[in-house]
Design a protein around this nucleic acid. Structure first.
Length: 109
DNA sequence: GGCGTGACTTGAA
DNA sequence: ATTCAAGCCACGC
């Protein structure tokens, strides 16, 4: 595999999200080099179920659990985040910026 | 092989 | 300040 797909890059980064931290689709897309491809990141997450990617730590720019609907159809995503010390209210992460993790830390070595 | 859709984001009206 | 539209890449029909 010479040319890694956009997805692979997404997985590579998302997989490195540390415990208790979260990031946004746009941040990952930006880290990859396509800040406008945030949608693709989200779509990639759609298949992340088969990957070792903690998709529950990936939310949109405002910290909203937009993808929670894609998990189990339950509040599993919220449960996981709360289990990691995060506060989730109304499907939204409280103090999102406080727990935000910069994907740039992953791509750089 | 073309068109539409999707876990988003940003800029402009 | 809010609403609309466009852009990005991959996948399904």
């Amino acid at each position: 595999m010479k040319h890694k797909s956009f997805y692979d890059k997404v997985y590579a980064i998302a997989r490195q999200i540390p415990y208790g931290k979260v990031t946004s689709y746009g941040a990952i897309a930006k880290a990859i080099g396509s800040p406008k491809s945030a949608r693709v990141v989200g779509y990639a997450m759609n298949n992340s179920s088969e990957k070792d990617v903690p998709a529950h730590r990936v939310v949109n720019r405002i910290g909203m659990l937009t993808g929670k609907h894609h998990f189990n159809g339950s509040n599993l995503m919220q449960q996981l985040l709360e289990s990691e010390g995060l506060k989730v209210v109304n499907h939204q992460i409280q103090d999102f910026e406080q727990h935000f993790w910069d994907p740039q830390e992953a791509i750089k070595t």
